[in-house]
């Protein structure tokens, strides 16, 4: 692979992939929290609509949604989306639906007594959500959100089929130019792997921070965590805990 191909296609491709990831993750985050919180709403209608949204967008394939937004929506609405934004919209909406399930699960896993205490203190529903439920639910959400973010990173490769010049599109062009596939596809796989690795590392840091905010001591590294758990299990087996249930 020549330096020109590298500079003109692969490096800008990495930048486009990162941009796509950031924009669609932002959109997916907004959708996930909005729809996920709506699924715990008092009103049955709101819950139904949010559930309907998740089932529709989880039911269909992100690629088909992307093609649909790009080819079907323009004659329908009379305006055309730039491929990049069709891609961001499709990725954000469908991965947001997966994220909504994570948010709902984490909100439901907060001990019910916490919500009842909020009612007893006559906080408004929004105050309960903001001050009691979310701070405790967010640390629970981070590991599944990290997985979802990796899925989203992998999803960004789909945009190359709309002709957006991301890493996979660059790989395709380089293959056409050099008539060699092994090298360029190996490189692009490694690029995605490195991006994913950076993401998982930084989400680990974020998890520790949010856990500390609600007073949960973060587990030490992978190995340390295993030893700590083992010691804990031993302690729990030998002593009778004073009615503290986990």
């Amino acid at each position: 692979m020549t330096a020109g191909l590298w500079q003109n296609w692969v490096l800008p491709g990495i930048w486009i992939t990162v941009q796509l990831l950031v924009y669609s993750a932002a959109l997916a985050g907004v959708v996930a929290f909005a729809v996920g919180m709506a699924r715990t709403h008092r009103s049955g209608l709101v819950r139904f609509l949010a559930g309907f949204y998740t089932e529709i967008f989880r039911g269909t394939s992100a690629l088909i949604l992307m093609f649909w937004l790009f080819f079907v929506l323009p004659p329908l609405l009379g305006w055309q989306l730039v491929p990049m934004w069709a891609a961001v919209l499709a990725l954000g909406l469908s991965y947001g639906a997966y994220g909504a399930e994570i948010v709902r699960g984490a909100l439901n896993s907060v001990a019910p007594a916490q919500r009842e205490a909020g009612i007893a203190l006559s906080l408004t529903p929004w105050q309960r959500m903001r001050l009691i439920l979310l701070p405790q639910a967010v640390p629970e959400m981070i590991p599944p959100f990290c997985n979802l973010l990796i899925e989203l990173l992998k999803g960004t490769a789909l945009v190359s089929l709309l002709g957006v010049g991301d890493v996979s599109f660059a790989a395709y062009l380089v293959r056409l130019a050099t008539q060699e596939s092994a090298q360029v596809y190996t490189i692009s796989l490694v690029i995605y792997f490195v991006l994913a690795f950076v993401l998982t590392r930084s989400m680990k840091v974020l998890e520790r921070k949010t856990k500390r905010n609600v007073g949960i001591e973060p587990e030490p590294g992978v190995l340390g965590g295993m030893f700590a758990k083992r010691a804990e299990a031993k302690a729990a087996g030998s002593t009778v805990s004073g009615g503290v249930s986990k």
Binding site: L161, S168, A182, Y185
Partner: peptide, 22 residues
């Protein structure tokens, strides 16, 4: 870990274009 964190689309192209070279 490598296969799980890289896009299926690129893997498809890899297998489709590289295997014939081999």
């Amino acid at each position: 870990e490598f296969i799980r964190t890289t896009p299926l689309l690129v893997q498809l192209f890899f297998l489709y274009f590289v295997l014939p070279e081999w």
